[in-house]
Write a protein that binds this DNA or RNA. Structure first.
Lengths: 219, 219, 219, 219
DNA sequence: AATGAATGAGAGTTCATTCAT
DNA sequence: AATGAATGAACTCTCATTCAT
């Protein structure tokens, strides 16, 4: 009986000193859950939500169809957990890259964009899961959006407090957040994929992005 | 029968002086086609592509299920016609607003964004049809993207030739096009809808958009 | 209003001295009927009965679907006319070849088999129309069988009266008729077609057939 | 799930000493599969392939329509299994009758024909399943043909090796095989059924068949 | 005589979910 | 906890036939 939309644990930190051969009942259960989860990620990432039928997921996870419902309330329940789970990993990576960046607002913004690209390279599933998510996993998509917005908004707030922005109004801050997020996503869709295969975008993409931010476009 | 992806005629201009009660066979057929098309627009707009089953569409259009296939090759054929049809109307409106705008690059860009908002007010269906389109009507979505990109790109080219842009490189022009389109779309998703209902966005949205373009945000 | 199973006229003898440009109403009608009939023969012969939908037939005949029902009571009505029509042409050819054969029972029997093969070469449609006919056009198939049996039976009767057969009993005559017809048909299916294409069977086929008839097989 | 064209098990041998009321899951499944298979045989045998819709079959087997697809890949998959399954039972019976026959080539050939008639009496479905099979279950029909031809051919080879045939050439052997099979089938169609009901053919049929084989017909 | 739009029943198939084992 | 057979509603699509024009 999983609570709906409880996020799948994606840290695999194991208590040390455990005998690897013997799994407790709870551990075995968790492993099964994770297999189902991963099977869903793979399937959606490769072939889209429509292909992620219970039959396909359970076959991939090598469990019976009925087993699925020991771990997820419904197909939708699982699908809606996909994005939030990925979202957190994405957030962690971008945060890392921002911390490593030179102490400069523009550099940090560049890190946010290229961090996103980097994540996409490691997990190209994200894009498909994301792009169909609006429709196929609306709850999960909304959660992802909220997490991402909150996180990006916090980042911009940080810049504002340090005097790196020319705007001040909360509504304007909101808008800027949306703009940057949307731009980042569209840029990735446009420049990171060719025929469904990930390709590393040219450095020029990030540079032009910066130009836009710096007002070096419209006179 | 129907050529795939042939766009539905959306002009209803009637030859004047005709008795409205008597319709020729061709006119009746066209009316039926239009009823099916409109039923699909309504249904997708209100409840998404998934809800737009043949049964739902034909019931709404008050024709038998089989009739559908006198006008469209398949369900997908119709769904893929939705976006291009709307796209053309959107383009026409925005073009009109741009022509009416004061002769100034920024004013024209403002007209493009607010024209988009205005269209959304009249046809709030667009947003849902658009946002699910990537997945549910890929051919139509691609056509829409191409039409929209070409049109926006032409507009920016116009500005460039008149010396209103600071960039020159074709690739940068392409990127700018994508950025503005994507931003416009995401902004509308964020500021034009609340609980699925259209709400007129505050004037501040357009103003902040302009600020972003003018580089009045990042120091 | 065609009477069911009325055979399509397949003689095209035209009264001489007719102005070719002006067709009487009846002639035009007959031409339309023939176009429909031919379209059906072609379609069934090429792609089987299942492919011979009213839509396919009328499209091929270049008339509207509704027109079909001015000439045939139903789809089945037409399909059931196909075999008898072909059957008569087949009978005419075989009869001709038998008349031309040397005056000898075995020679005439050889003529019946090779005449069948010859017809198949000119109208390979026959085989498909025939082989599916049992199921798809049972009435027409039965008529064809009866015509063919009667005709073959008459031929054998002719041989019997001239003292060329060793049997006498009517039931045995019936059985012999069935055996020869069935053998002829199976032989054609086995030796006249390869991958759906007609191939002229080797002379050995007819020779072995004769051997069988002459009791040169079982000791 | 089900491998295509896997033959349905038609032995019902049960491990003895099992309580009949308690069926294991696997046994229940096999029973369901058999019910579906039998329902198809009945339906096709009585009313032809066209009548054997999924709805009809599942209704007769008293299972839900979806259950069908737990056991067969498609409707066609099942239909193509019908003939091979029957074919094997037919082959077994004929083989038995041939073994019981007096040691004489003609007697064995008589056993082949009358064994066929006997089978038809027990399973009159065969004829309809067979006669429509060419069109409606081509794969199954081909398999049946191959099994039957191989078996008959082997029987004739046996006779040839024992010096009971006057022919020697492999091609002639092939032709003879085809002729005997086809004759047997057509004879059964002509003499075993009246108005769709099985009737035992008179002994004269077999006798005349023998006469034909012995060349006691054409002078 | 010809048209072709409309009909609607019925086809095969998929699939999330349930539940007895 | 795991199984997997059973369910049945819902889906898209086809097609012979009708009938107003």
């Amino acid at each position: 009986m999983s609570t709906s939309l409880k996020l799948a644990a994606d840290d695999d930190t194991n208590p040390p000193g455990r005998r690897p051969a013997r799994l407790t009942r709870a551990e075995k259960a968790e492993a099964t859950r994770q297999r189902l989860f991963d099977a869903a990620v793979q399937t959606v990432g490769e072939s889209g939500y429509a292909a992620a039928s219970i039959a396909a997921i359970t076959a991939r996870a090598k469990v019976a169809q009925g087993t699925f419902y020991n771990y997820f309330e419904s197909r939708q329940d699982l699908l809606d957990q996909l994005l939030p789970s990925i979202s957190r990993r994405l957030h962690a990576l971008v945060r890392q890259r921002v911390l490593e960046a030179p102490d400069d607002a523009i550099e940090r913004e560049k890190a946010r964009l290229s961090g996103f690209f980097e994540f996409l390279e490691k997990e190209p599933h994200l894009f498909k899961i994301l792009s169909e998510g609006t429709v196929q996993a609306p709850r999960g998509f909304r959660m992802h959006l909220e997490m991402q917005s909150a996180s990006y908004r916090r980042a911009l707030e940080y810049e504002r407090l340090r005097g790196n922005l020319l705007i001040d109004d909360p509504v304007e801050m909101d808008m800027l957040t949306q703009m940057l997020i949307s731009t980042r996503e569209y840029l990735s869709g446009r420049f990171c994929f060719e025929d469904g295969q990930y390709v590393r975008p040219s450095a020029g993409v990030v540079e032009t992005y910066v130009k836009l931010l710096q007002g070096k476009i419209f006179k």
